[in-house]
Amino acid sequence: MALERHIYPGNNTTEGFYSYYNYILGQREANRIICIKGGPGVGKSTFMRKIGETYLEKGEDVDFMHCSSDNNSLDGVVLKNRRIALIDATSPHVVDYKCKSLYWTSKYINRRETSRRRYIIDTVRRSKNSIYYIRYTK
């Protein structure tokens, strides 16, 4: 039976952000580290989740790495037996130097819809950045 784990490898604390990301799957032990980039809402988490679910159905162990600031968002998926990691490489994640492959989701953006909602997207992004700054820089 496949093992499905849901993990929060990073966390915002009163001491600042604490991370276990460097201990998930090392570069030397990994067969492949795939970095996924793209703007907000383009499907990075959905893409990783579907890959993870597909391998679970095949009977393989999968670790789902959840984002500490958004439970519905994934920061990564690890296929332990295959030693493959898919990780969100967009800001604030600084992982490009670890990537063995790069996948851009931006080519799948509905540009008309994104343009129409640009003001909302920018407002939410600025608000989130302000809240993070206030909460975690004191």
Rank of each mutant, 00 (worst) to 15 (best):
Gly52Lys: 08
Lys107Val: 07
Ser68Gly: 06
Ser127Asp: 01
Thr54Asn: 02
Ile87His: 03
Leu102Asp: 04
Val77Gly: 01
Ile134Leu: 12
Arg5Ser: 04
Val95Asn: 00
Phe64Arg: 00
Ile7Arg: 01
Asp75Gln: 15
Gly76Met: 09
Thr137Phe: 09
Val78Ser: 06
Leu74Thr: 02
Gly10Ile: 14
Asn71Gln: 10
Arg117Pro: 03
Ser101Asn: 05
Ser45Glu: 05
Lys128Pro: 00
Leu56Arg: 02
Gly43Asn: 02
Asp75Arg: 14
Asn12Cys: 10
Asn72Asp: 06
Thr114Arg: 12
Ser68Asp: 09
Ile7Trp: 04
Tyr132Gly: 02
Glu113Ala: 15
Asp96Arg: 11
Leu25Gln: 01
Leu3His: 05
Gly59Val: 10
Met48Gly: 00
Ile134Trp: 08
His66Cys: 08
Val77Phe: 09
Asp61Leu: 05
Ala89Asn: 11
Trp104His: 15
Gly39Trp: 05
Pro9Glu: 10
Asp75Ala: 11
Gly39Tyr: 10
Leu102Gly: 03
Leu56His: 01
Thr90Gly: 04
Lys37Ala: 02
Cys99Tyr: 03
Glu29Pro: 01
Asp70Met: 13
Pro92Ser: 09
Tyr20Trp: 12
Gly59Ser: 09
Cys99Ala: 15
Ala2Leu: 03
Glu60Trp: 10
Lys100Pro: 06
Thr46Pro: 04
Arg117Gly: 01
Ser91Gly: 02
Ser115Phe: 13
